[in-house]
């Protein structure tokens, strides 16, 4: 509430009242924290991309012109795209099943989704490093079944990254999709059946179109999160198959090249924010991501 301190007639009637903090002032501590330790550092970093080592766009020319870096961009988009598509293909039937499942069974699945989401990221990645290694369980099982003769290279390459990242992203697509499907009125599908649609037609003409906004929002979120992922690609991808986030870290940590680091960060930032803008524009939700 905004307090007026004077009436029309000019008589002050509220000076004895203790001045309360206004609503804006309540947000000030957080605002100061964010400006000082978020906005300013990020802006400085981005500035360095055009000032170091010499002023100009040299860093961007090098970053976008060299085939080494281009391969890293390709890797990043390829893996993110694959992860998104696979998550969607697996996530949709699971979300659908969850929406029709009896409550008890559904709550078990939810508990496992949450457990997987909340378990330490490094612990989960470590598990995949062990599972996917040459002498790991997966290769052993495949050989034991007679499907392959010698171990497949599943780790230290983009296959490993894709498997590990899909594992991490699945809950992020299942949960929002479940929300969307659960909100669809079953009567709509009964109506479709009464109109003569068979199951397949109902799926393609009714259920899928109704779920598309949720799928698009979830997919975009998973894609954006994957683009900036650092830990899993670094551990499962090996040094030869870098992704964008690793490149940024490498510029800064091993090469101490702040100009290039800033330029790569800007590219990642611009792509991320542009995709979020698309999401806000077309799906109007502020669905949130994780790390």
């Amino acid at each position: 509430m905004v307090s007026h301190t004077e009436t029309d007639s000019g008589r002050a009637y509220a000076p004895t009242r203790v001045r309360r903090l206004t609503d804006f002032e309540l947000t000030l501590p957080a605002l100061v924290l964010l400006v000082l330790f978020f906005v300013v550092p990020v802006v400085i970093l981005l500035m360095r991309s055009v000032t170091e080592p010499v002023p100009g766009l040299g860093n961007y020319v090098e970053l976008l012109g060299s085939s080494t870096y281009l391969r890293i961009f390709t890797n990043t988009f390829l893996v993110s795209g694959l992860v998104t598509v696979v998550s969607l293909l697996i996530g949709f039937p699971v979300a659908w099943a969850l929406a029709v499942m009896p409550g008890r069974a559904a709550s078990i699945v939810f508990a496992i989704l949450l457990l997987s989401m909340w378990t330490n990221l490094l612990a989960r990645t470590y598990a995949w490093m062990v599972l996917l290694q040459r002498t790991g369980v997966i290769n052993k099982v495949l050989i034991g079944l007679g499907l392959i003769d010698k171990p497949l290279p599943l780790v230290n390459n983009l296959t490993g990254v894709t498997i590990g990242m899909t594992y991490i992203m699945l809950p992020f697509i299942i949960l929002p999709l479940y929300g969307v499907i659960k909100k669809i009125d079953p009567a709509i599908l009964q109506a479709a059946a009464l109109c003569g649609a068979n199951r397949w037609q109902s799926l393609v003409r009714v259920l899928l179109p109704l779920a598309v906004p949720g799928m698009a929002a979830g997919a975009l979120m998973v894609f954006v999160m994957s683009l900036g992922y650092f830990v899993t690609p670094a551990l499962l991808g090996g040094t030869a198959n870098m992704m964008l986030a690793e490149l940024i870290a490498q510029f800064v940590q091993s090469l101490v090249n702040w100009g290039m680091g800033g330029a790569a960060a800007l590219v990642l930032l611009v792509v991320t924010l542009a995709l979020y803008a698309v999401q806000l524009r077309f799906f109007g939700t502020d669905r949130m991501g994780g790390r």
């Binding site: 007026h4 009436t7 509220a14 004895t16």
Partner: peptide, 21 residues
């Protein structure tokens, strides 16, 4: 007392209420 009037006064038993929170 949740809103302050732009003008006028309120008296309870002859005393103004407006300066009381």
């Amino acid at each position: 007392g949740f809103e302050d009037p732009t003008g006028g006064d309120i008296l309870l038993n002859g005393e103004s209420l407006l300066s009381t929170p």
